[in-house]
Design a protein around this nucleic acid. Structure first.
Lengths: 139, 139
DNA sequence: CTAATTCCTATAGCGACTAGAGCTTCAAGA
DNA sequence: TCTTGAAGCTCTAGTCGCTATAGGAATTAG
């Protein structure tokens, strides 16, 4: 019926201290307790935690997760806000990809610049790391 | 000839407290001081700082930067280690790109799943955020 | 010489957890 | 029923790479 924090952790992949942290932060509700003061969770808690976990895995920033939870508490509201958050995250992921591709290009150039046996003094890799002027883009 | 920490900051784009932080961490040498105890830097310091800055901009983790600095202190060593660090960073950047592309695909799917007017209860975006089972990949 | 700017040290804060200490409760087997 | 070992509890502190603030001293331009 209900389960312990360790069981919840196993079922969701969220570590025990992290679950307690989320509770302190108000992301999940404080659950019922046994007589001995141990937490006992219900299925709704598990769903909530999986929701958080999945959002985090998808790279959503914490405030966005908070907003989505807030939103899901109000079933009658329009869900534009959820759309907006998803779209914004998509935008941000794409931006990061572009940035990393620039880095990839620079690192590729740097990594192949020093083939073979050299000493540090004549190492083009070290030179390239020191000199942004050699770069193809403003990464 | 020599310049203040503010000037160094302007020339390298590294903020003043960050320069002091790098000194405390041993990434740059403690410079000479004026009679009044203010730091005065030389060109070599500027080069070092630019090196660090550029590495960080390229996404190198701090320990890698430390290693590269260590290495550059020993001009006669072979530079395999520098090659290795560059290659490893390239690998890591590529891995991150792949990961972000997975996220991009999922978010794309999620973002288009809820076109039009809906309320929270029937919001596919919220559902998708809660359910990793819908996902195409293990992001 | 004064006033504005820059510099100094030291300490604390950030975000999102994670680790550890010291103690209590639970669950399963004898 | 008793024991024992795993798992739970709270509280505090640590992580990383800076960044911000406070309170005071030095420098520099006019």
């Amino acid at each position: 019926m209900d389960f312990s924090i360790g069981e919840l952790s196993r079922q969701t992949g969220v570590k025990v201290p992290t679950i307690r942290y989320y509770e302190k932060e108000g992301l999940i509700d404080a659950p019922l307790r046994t007589e001995g003061n141990q937490r006992r969770y219900q299925e709704t808690d598990r769903e909530r935690l999986r929701f958080i976990r999945h959002c985090r895995d998808l790279g959503l920033p914490m405030p966005a997760v908070r907003d989505l939870i807030e939103l899901s508490q109000h079933p009658d509201r329009p869900c534009d806000e959820a759309d907006r958050i998803a779209a914004e995250q998509l935008r941000s992921v794409r931006e990061r990809i572009l940035h990393l591709k620039k880095l990839e290009a620079e690192l590729e150039r740097i990594a192949v610049s020093c083939q073979g046996d050299h000493t540090v003094t004549e190492c083009n890799v070290l030179k390239a790391f020191g000199d942004h002027g050699q770069c193809l883009s403003n990464h």
